[in-house]
Structure formats: C-alpha cells, structure tokens
Write a protein that binds this DNA or RNA. Structure first.
Lengths: 334, 334
DNA sequence: GAGAGCACCTAAAAGGTTTTCGGAAACGTA
DNA sequence: TACGTTTCCGAAAACCTTTTAGGTGCTCTC
C-alpha cells in the first residue's frame, strides 16, 4: 500500500554483485553469461521480486505491446463480445488493451486517439455498435488500425463484419429444409445496414428455393419486442397461411412468439420462428427457446485482433472481411 | 500507416531554433520564456504535430496516469455498467484504463496483476460479477486498489457495493404505501450474497410495517425467468390472496408477470410485481413494464474510480461502502 | 563605470532498461 | 615468455522528456 520505491535492475545487480548489463542479459537469456552467474542473478531477482519497468523497456524498443480499443458508441450489446474476443487474443500474446469509450462523440473520439498515440500504442482496433460503415480514422495515423463489427468507409482499411446476408440465408434454407413454404421476414429499421443485409439474404435464399416472401414484402420496423408483436398481427391478418417467419433480432422474435401463441398458433408446429443475434438471455428464455443466427462476435473480435497483430508486423490484409454466422437450432423451428 | 520515426522534442527544438529545455517549458507553461519565443515553439510543434512521448514522461515522473481494470469474472451484465462508469470518471481526468479480464481464473488474474504492475499502473480497480466477497489482492501490492460490486474479504480494503438490503426494503415500502398487504418474495439461490441481502431487506421492511411474508418464507431458486414462472404457481397455490411480489431479479419478475397473467391475475391491479436490476431490455419490454430496483451501477463505478484517485493521492477511505439503490416506478405496480 | 539585479535561455542530469563494444582473465600454443 | 583465442563481464550509449542549476547579456542604480 505504501508507495516504497520500486526495485530496479540496479538493485538486482548490487545484490548479485554484477553489473546491470549482466543482469539484463541473464534475465533475458541474451549474450554470454556463465550458468552460475545467471543462477545468482535469477535468485537475486526472485528475492527482490524484481519486475522490469515496462516503460523503460518500451521507451527503448519503441514497442509498447499495447493496443488501443476504441468503441465508437457506448460499449453495447454487440461491442462487448467483440471486445472480449479481442481482449482474449491480445491477452494470450502478452499484449495489453487500453480501453476508450467515445460515447458516440467524435470530438471525444479524436481526443482519445490523440492520447492513445501519445502513449505510443502499437495499433488500434475500432469497434462499432452497428454494421453501418463509419468514418475512417486511418488517414495520417502512424499505427495500423483494424475495424470490427462496424466497417470503415474506406475500402483500403481492414474491417471485419458479420456476414449478415449469408446468416439470414441460412435461416431461410433451414426453414425450407423443414418444409416451410410461406415464410415472412420481420426486421429492424431500413436505415440499418443490418436490416438491409438480412433482408437481402432472405430474399436471395427464397428465390433460390423458388419461393416468394409471404405477404409480398419485408416488414421493416424497430428492433423491439413490441414491434415483433405488432408484426405478428400484421402477418397473420395479411396471410393466415404463413407457416414461418425469420426475424431480424431475438427481441423481435420474442415478441413474435408471444403474440403468435396468444392468437392460437402453436410454435413451432403451426408457426416456426427464427431469431437473430443469439442473445442468450432472451433466446433461451422464450417459450420455446429460439432457433437463431449467431454472429460469432467473439470469434470476430479475436480475428480482428489477430489481424491487427499481422498489420503491426507489416502484413496487413486490406478490405472488408465477412465472417460467417452460424445457425443455432433450438425448439422454435421443427 | 508507414511507421516513420515519430517526431520528438528535439525536432521541435531544431525547427524553432531553441534548446529542448525551452521547448518543454514553452509547451508546458513552466519557467521563463519570452512570449515571442513561446509562439515560435508552439508554431513549430503544431507544424510537426508533435505529441510528447508519454512513456518518457511517465518514466521520469513515476506516474503513468493509467489504471488497471481487472474483471474477476468474464465481463458480464453487471460488470459492464461499472466499467463504463469507471471509464467515464477516468476519461474525464485524462487517465487511461488498461482492461484485463481474468475469466474467473485466479492464475490468469495473478498474471494480469504482474503485467499491470510491470506497466507501472497508478492504481487498480477490481470489479466482480456478484456481490459476494472475493479474495483481497491488496496484500503486498505497491499500488492502491479499489473493489467495485464484489467487495474484498479484507475489511481494511476499499470496496463499493450496492446497498441491496435497502434496495429491497424500498421495494417493500413502495408496495406498502400502495396498500398491498400480502407480499411474497422470490429470489435467486441462497448461496448468493445478493439473495440473502435482498431477503433481509424485504423481511426487515415488512416487519417495520407490521406485516409478514405471504407464504411465510422467502422462495429461493434461480435467477431465471423459468424460476419466476414456477414460483408464481407456488405462490398462487400457497396463498391465493397474495397481492404483490418482490422479485430478486428482472428475469424472475418477467417470468412471474407472464405466469400470473396466464393464471388470470391482472398485473398490476390484482397482483403487483417488482423486479430488481433495472435491466432495461427486459424491464421495459415486459407487459406491463416493470417497476424495479436500479443499483446505479454506473454511479457505483464512477464513485469507485473517484475514490481510486483519492487513494492514489494518499487519501484512501477504507471499508465497504454501500451505495444507494433507487426504485424505478413503472406500470407493474399501482 | 562598476556592481547588482533581472529576463531569458542552455547544458546536463535523471528516470530504467537493452545493446554494442571493448576489456580482462584464463587458457592453449609456439 | 609472447601471443592468439575464447569466455565472460562491464562501461557507456541510446530511448525522450522534465527539471535544476547555471550562464549570458541586458538594464538600472549609485
């Protein structure tokens, strides 16, 4: 608790009766050091519980083994798993993560970038809260940047996003395999890239199966449970024969399941429902638990981190990389 | 992108035609520097977009303006707001946060502590995932530590936890004010401190009002929606006159509301329900939206961070500090 | 006109580590 | 003995900034 002076390499050298250069070499396994001397140094270091000062080391090497993690919007539901995956990948490689939350404020973001650069981070990972493209910050930055979840608007940057088009298509293909023929799609607002991508995936996969959308059009609304319930009414009135629906989020799906049951549809027998996000607190707690599309965000975060490593080593891989989603099959489809 | 040599104070000095000492003083506003010289230096720094190397600065001052944020268990639902609050408080003070997630593994935790100390963090904030006490790490650490959400088991440490006893009591008092008389309590497993604290608060507040628990005892179970539904059956069978229930979590409350309605109880008229956590995705999406206890976790995190500042300045405030909860009144009580 | 006082600036040290280069000791060979 | 070789260790520079102590030139006063 008391802030006594931390032990330095000089202390170890004195205790071992050698010079600081020898201590450095002994501990790092460099240069020529007699085995017996090395032992003596190691013992001294142990006894003093010496930890080399990372600052001094970084100052010299120019490498801080630190990366900045910039969340453009307040760390949300999607940011978290990405962050965890990244933290995981970095932690394994002895890297440390400086966390900065810009709260959706670009002034604040600029400020954070400046301080991160002043701290000489080796790289930057920018994680967004939606899959909509965000302004690039890579321009005139001296360190590599990787974007996760929200891609950069500059195609020359390195971005990782979930492949929502294919994710939604997987959901449709699953339903088609199960014999469903009148499938509707309810999703979030049109101004979300995620809504549009998922709708595109649904449409393409239906076409591929020679089917068309029940109701004739995608139902765009909000990401909420409430919209799920409303949409259920709309669908069942417009086309009472609808036997399945792919939802753009688990929240929508939860509302959908609830409202459908209230209107006498059995889920999944009469009416199969698929969610999106695999947000477990919701998807496993509905009755029945939801079949849903998981975006593998932890993997996405980890991959982004690994590619940041590569970029730091000068092996960047520009472009928008679409990471595969996977369908989690539970009881809301059969 | 290319890693050209970063510009140093020497470059600025050369451009401005002065010594590096003068540059330092001009930029930091120290010492005697003629106004005209200061201008020239500032201009040079601007033109080169000079950022002082934080490493060198820290090495000299012994202060890194960095704190470690150690999450003992994988950053969960409760960890996040605490983390955000802390990040907020630190960010405002030009501090940076090094994030480490130990994934519930104490070996990993030890490892993270070592590397954080090697990086010479100015302090540590340890955030837990439940309010159960956790082992102290303060022993023989050279920097101050503050615990958030999960208190340290050493009372001499500085810990911040939500005041669950009072939070639950607030819920009861609210119901009593509304005229409810037969109140039940359904909560999580007994081995959670949170369950026991909330039960204690419920019991005390009921006693204070001269009432006793409907059903005669606290119903301990799981934190899940499923348990909420089961418990609803138990309660309504054991004492059909029960007119209100305080739940230990929003998930339990959500199950409770659903099951009660299915059994013909009107919520809130016949049966008032109060949740806990104010986990908004759930508490605002149930029908009706839940009255619930909010633990103010962001405030808790921010406060913990501020006290860490204080501790760094040598003004520590030992003990377990209980932070007030607040009741959020929505439509599930009337 | 000389000493004192002032305003402004610079040289140098400090902070802790790694690395390079050179030096010292030990040993073998001529 | 003189010299070369090998093995091990130490001195010093480098990284970049801040701060202290000191130095230079100027003005003021008697």
């Amino acid at each position: 608790m008391a802030s006594q002076r931390p032990v330095t390499i000089t202390d170890v050298a004195a205790r071992a009766g050698v010079s600081i250069a020898t201590v450095s070499k002994a501990l790092n396994g460099r240069g020529q050091v007699r085995a017996e001397t090395r032992q003596r140094v190691m013992r001294a270091a142990e006894e003093l519980s010496f930890q080399p000062n990372a600052l001094a080391r970084s100052l010299l090497s120019g490498q801080t083994r630190t990366v900045g993690l910039l969340t453009s919007d307040s760390v949300g539901r999607f940011g978290i798993p990405v962050l965890l995956g990244a933290e995981d990948a970095f932690g394994a490689g002895e890297m440390a993560v400086l966390l900065c939350d810009a709260r959706g404020d670009s002034i604040r973001e600029q400020h954070h970038i400046r301080t991160l650069l002043a701290r000489r981070v080796d790289g930057l990972i920018v994680v967004g809260e939606s899959t909509d493209a965000r302004p690039s910050i890579t321009r005139d930055l001296t360190v590599p940047v990787v974007y996760a979840y929200a891609p950069s608007d500059d195609p020359a940057d390195v971005s990782f996003v979930p492949d929502d088009v294919d994710g939604a298509a997987q959901a449709i293909r699953h339903l088609v395999t199960l014999g469903r023929r009148r499938i509707a799609h309810v999703t979030g607002p049109t101004y979300y890239q995620a809504s549009r991508d998922r709708a595109a995936g649904v449409t393409a996969a239906l076409e591929e199966a020679g089917l068309s959308l029940s109701g004739g059009q995608v139902l765009y609304g909000a990401w909420s449970q409430r919209w799920g319930r409303q949409a259920a009414e709309v669908i069942l009135r417009a086309d009472p024969e609808t036997d399945a629906v792919v939802c753009g989020s688990d929240q929508i799906a939860a509302g959908m399941v609830e409202a459908a049951r209230e209107r006498g549809r059995r889920v999944p027998e009469d009416f199969a429902v698929i969610g999106y996000d695999n947000w477990e607190v919701l998807s496993t707690e509905t009755r029945p638990p939801l079949t849903t599309v998981d975006m593998n965000l932890e993997v996405l975060g980890r991959t982004a981190a690994q590619h940041l490593f590569a970029a730091i080593d000068g092996r960047a891989t520009p472009g928008v990389h679409r990471m595969p989603c996977r369908l989690i099959i539970r009881d809301s489809t059969v």
